[in-house]
Design a binder for these strands. Structure first.
Lengths: 196, 196
DNA sequence: GTCTATAGGGAGATAGAC
DNA sequence: GTCTATCTCCCTATAGAC
């Protein structure tokens, strides 16, 4: 792994744990075992490191979800929707590094870099939404999901769960069986609420 | 309003907008029209200001919810649960100042002050949960809510909505009719999912 | 309680040798 | 690309006069 890649990798961890302001260039340099000024040979400034970190995280995040959807293509809409949730929350790398970072900065974007990173996040959202709405509409065509419901209402609640489970998982430090139970509780009410 | 109260009031706004680290003592001092060192006549340090801010926000937040529940006592469980959500998200003060602050620091507590403020937040959660579980169990006794569901599963989904709507409202900048629509979409799937 | 002045430290960033 | 040395700025916090 090149120094540049190492810097991104370690900065993702630091930014997620401490936040943007509280992550100093010195700390990043220590993690990749160089001195602070050497960072500037790889990136123009701290904002550039952050931008590259966001870019990598959103790409990996979207890739993971789209791949999971692909793999579930032969299953019912119910199973696909459940799998996407389940896989997202039982994959440790996704949960511990990408997810932590993604949600911290989606929710509370540092002022100085907001303009730069908002387009990156918006793009990732659009990719996910267009993949999910297809599955929901297929489910309605199959009569798995109540066709009387607007597909956008179903998508809205699903995305609501998808996005915010992350918040709860982190907040309550849910792992293993507890996480599984939590996911199933939330899912069961959702599915009762949309099934045909 | 005393200077001390002014400091808390303005610091709540600043902390919510910029976060803990990015809110400096100088900015707080400017907002209350004194010089930075004068702040130290009122509070020991920045952490103390933050602690007092959290304390005030959690108290006002819980008070508001418990009062709303009280006022809805003569209504059905369905109406009470809906009202609590609706009132919380159509009250501007709650949404713009208390909510913004509360969720920012519930989700991403600054390292240095985490140990101090976590008990404050935990207490507020417990107060809300014990009030809500009563309403849900009443609803099951009345046959409004499916008694076959565990009341804790219902509470979990309700709290999930209650807590995380805030995240979405802020993220999508939902206001007025859009917010109303969003709330109703989420509510409709939830109620379909728990009703008898 | 409020001020001016300042200590002391850490931040981001740059210059220039190797 | 990496380093040492350093600049400049802003931070929290304190000393001490009024």
């Amino acid at each position: 792994m090149s120094k540049k890649e190492q810097i991104i990798k370690e900065s993702i961890r630091l930014f997620s744990e401490y936040g943007y302001e509280a992550t100093s260039m010195t700390k990043i340099a220590e993690k990749v075992d160089i001195k602070k000024p050497s960072l500037y040979a790889h990136f123009k400034n701290k904002e550039a490191i952050f931008y590259n970190a966001v870019e990598q995280v959103t790409e990996e995040y979207v890739d993971f979800i789209l791949t999971t959807i692909q793999k579930s293509r032969h299953l019912s809409s119910k199973e696909t929707l459940y799998n996407v949730l389940h896989q997202s929350y039982t994959n440790e790398y996704l949960l511990d590094f990408l997810g932590e970072f993604f949600y911290r900065f989606v929710l509370f974007t540092p002022y100085e870099v907001a303009d730069q990173i908002k387009p990156l996040i918006k793009k990732s959202e659009e990719q996910l939404e267009s993949a999910l709405i297809k599955i929901i509409e297929e489910g309605q065509a199959n009569r798995e999901i109540d066709p009387a419901l607007s597909s956008h209402v179903v998508l809205r609640h699903y995305l609501f769960i998808f996005n915010n489970l992350d918040v709860d998982v982190r907040y309550y430090s849910l792992r293993g069986i507890e996480l599984e139970q939590y996911l199933n509780d939330i899912w069961s009410v959702f599915w009762r609420g949309v099934k045909n």
